[in-house]
């Protein structure tokens, strides 16, 4: 659907995006992750043709972007803003028309979405009279009103209450069911874990991790084990086979270092106490993220 090849962008003397390549499969939910200032927004702006890359190729459906292609893409920028003095409904219609909708079509869709987002009562209010959360809903409507086949969402959940986050997820799900591709840019890992199939993690403009989320977890995740036991907890204090050991009265949690097997850990623990229960925990993406970003900084 969308392919970036060796894309680089410099601002003055700093490199915002450095030789970045990734491939977003059609119909997938793709997470573009990275800490603040990693180059996520710059990358998105280049995809949206707001900025021109210094080098590299961005292609859409196998070809460079053509003029009409942007009418098939929806974009929710990270920093939100609308015409404060204008009325809600007419603003959405205007922005919908700029995305290629006809006047009547835009008006009809606006009514539908306003109802869905429970904003019908505000249709003729000025945008500045709306609450922040409601303004954000309006912004989201603007990004999907033209039924995009590719939707780019930059930090979409920031500032939304749980009810509306749910509504947003519901609609994203619907769009995906209809075959739309979605790119998420965020640093909120829990959201990504629940929604995305593929991720690309960037830091300082460089790609650090890229691929299927499950495979990445398998490959990079440190394994965490929880063991319940009977016996003296003091005897476990100098346990060598676990890192970041967290010891309680009847249980312990710790990371299994690279090169060590679960069996080794269990053997060492069983030598000192009697194990009643053990469980391997799935690594969190957040931990991978932190490890990788820190690792990238050290390198």
């Amino acid at each position: 659907m969308l392919i970036l090849q060796n894309v680089t962008k410099n601002f003055n003397r700093t490199t915002a995006v450095d030789d970045l390549s990734f491939d977003v499969q059609g119909g997938s939910i793709f997470g573009l992750l990275g800490p603040n200032g990693a180059g996520k927004t710059t990358t998105i702006r280049m995809i949206m043709n707001i900025l021109k890359p210094d080098s590299g190729i961005i292609s859409f459906k196998g070809e460079p972007f053509k003029r009409g292609d942007y009418h098939k893409i929806g974009y929710l920028p990270e920093e939100r803003g609308l015409y404060q003095k204008m009325r809600l409904k007419e603003t959405i219609i205007y922005l919908g028309r700029l995305k290629g909708l006809s006047g009547t079509n835009a008006a009809q869709k606006t009514d539908e979405f306003l109802e869905r987002f429970e904003l019908t009562g505000y249709a003729n209010r000025k945008i500045e009279e709306l609450s922040k959360g409601n303004q954000q809903k309006v912004q989201f409507i603007v990004s999907i009103i033209h039924d995009p086949i590719l939707l780019i969402l930059d930090e979409p959940f920031a500032g939304l209450d749980p009810v509306n986050q749910l509504l947003l997820k519901e609609i994203i799900g619907e769009l995906q069911d209809r075959g739309a591709t979605i790119i998420f840019s965020t640093h909120q890992m829990e959201q990504v874990e629940k929604l995305c199939n593929e991720i690309c993690l960037i830091s300082n403009g460089k790609k650090i991790l890229y691929g299927n989320l499950r495979e990445i977890k398998k490959e990079y995740g440190t394994q965490v084990v929880t063991i319940k036991f009977e016996g003296e907890k003091e005897t476990l204090e100098d346990l060598k086979s676990l890192r970041n050991l967290c010891l309680e009265d009847k249980s312990l949690t710790g990371e299994i270092p690279e090169g060590m097997l679960l069996n080794d850990v269990l053997l060492e623990v069983m030598n000192r106490v009697s194990v009643t229960h053990f469980q391997l925990l799935e690594p969190s993406l957040e931990q991978i993220f932190i490890d990788q970003v820190k690792g990238g900084d050290r390198a």
Partner: peptide, 15 residues
């Protein structure tokens, strides 16, 4: 207004 509101990003992603 469009600049400070970041509306330009939406506009320029359309036209």
């Amino acid at each position: 207004e469009e600049r400070t509101n970041r509306l330009l990003e939406i506009l320029l992603s359309s036209i």
